[in-house]
Write a protein that binds this DNA or RNA. Sequence first.
DNA 1: GACAGATGAAGGA
DNA 2: TCCTTCATCTGTC
Length: 175
Amino acid sequence: MKKDLVELPTATADGEFIARYSGNGLAGLDFPGRGRAELPLGQAARQRRPAASNALPAKIKGWHRMTGAALKRILSGRDPKALPPLDWEGATDFQRSVWRQMLKLSAGKTKSYGEVAAAIGNPKAVRAVGSACGANPIPVLVPCHRILAANKKIGGFGGGLEWKRKLLAKEGIRF
DNA sequence: GACAGATGAAGGA
DNA sequence: TCCTTCATCTGTC
């Protein structure tokens, strides 16, 4: 059963991201140009958004402000001051462990898939870490772009390698 | 239960 | 060096 999610656009200098909120927090984030986000500005999230923005619960408004601020800070190569609560319902324990490791990485820092696997106590699960990264519903805020393959190779990225390169470049990371 | 995957390491040319 | 192959672990169907 799918939870009812509220989708809200977040305009940044790099395009309009689409944030999805459940009753528990931020449940997803789409890159500009993907899914509904490719619609013209302002129309992207209209389908599920309540008719009037003031119909939104105050808590979601607050989360959305935090999400926008965090996104803008990350996109300018800095650490977010604060993140809204993240709703990882449905994720496995393994995925949550991997994502928590990513949240520990500050701007400009990177880890390899192998290092993340070792950090969660399972150094051989490098491929599984890659799968967990790909399953990350909240890219950018959960910085899966800071996970590189061995030898500082770029590896892959669910949002597209162009975005990964762009995000890493903003943080001054060479690979 | 089988298969695929955003890896890593080892061995050979 | 570079390329290929295989081991390993997890998620999905």
